[in-house]
Amino acid sequence: MKPPTDRGSLALAAYVYAVLAFIIVPLVIVIPMSFSQNDYLTFPPSGFTLKWYSEYFDSRQWRAATWLSVQVALLTALFASVIGTAATYAMIRGRSRLVTAFQILLIGPIIVPHIALAVGLYLFFQTIGLSGTIPGFVLAHTVLTLPFVVFTMAAALGKVDANLEAAAMSCGATRFQAFRLVTLPLVLPNLVSSALFAFIISFDEPVVSFFLSGVRQKTLPRRMFEDIEQNLTPVIPAIATLLIVLSILILLGAQVLRSRSVTRIASQ
């Protein structure tokens, strides 16, 4: 692209940066608010204190909610990446007539509004005792994160030459050994990055958690929602700041993994 010299290009650039500011400012604004000394939110924030961070880390309830979310997100990442990779592998290497059904069921949980799924699961899990339990959250979040895993892994597995596996198998390896020794190392960075994304989706998921949370078992987003409505203090911007940092770390991690996967597959 030539450097923008004419008026049209400048106008376009100005417009684009205004939109980018619109995107970024709300994320940045929470940071100064988290250091405010007032007990309630005002702008501009006054003074500087770290007490809201220590309140978050010291509170048993916030810690419990965070720990629950961490457990759920870790298990979700594990299940989603294993189930998703298995299914993707089957779709790519198999001779299945289930392609259409697979695609519909994969996309369904993204298309159907989360409020619908949340209400459905609320009524269903309540009757079988899964409501407000870790398995309940994990099952629900796994379904929500599978599409991300499958699409990431489909792109990665599609790039791996199937003849490599075939060669390994003609040397006597079983299918599973061929996958484990040849294909898996090649797509491992993608697998880890899709697990990272599954983790963060689950960790931040508000709607299904809102309905599935029990009276004692509450995920972090559900606790935050309650505090925003019932007890709004700068603890919320403090947690928001921590969550944004977490998102940035995960994106960076995924980026590093992605660059590694490109070099690996390219150099095979």
Binding site: T42, E229, Q230, N231
Partner: peptide
């Protein structure tokens, strides 16, 4: 307003 905390907020702000 939807919660007691909210009615406090709107009076304050």
């Amino acid at each position: 307003w939807k919660t007691g905390d909210q009615v406090q907020q709107i009076m304050r702000s």
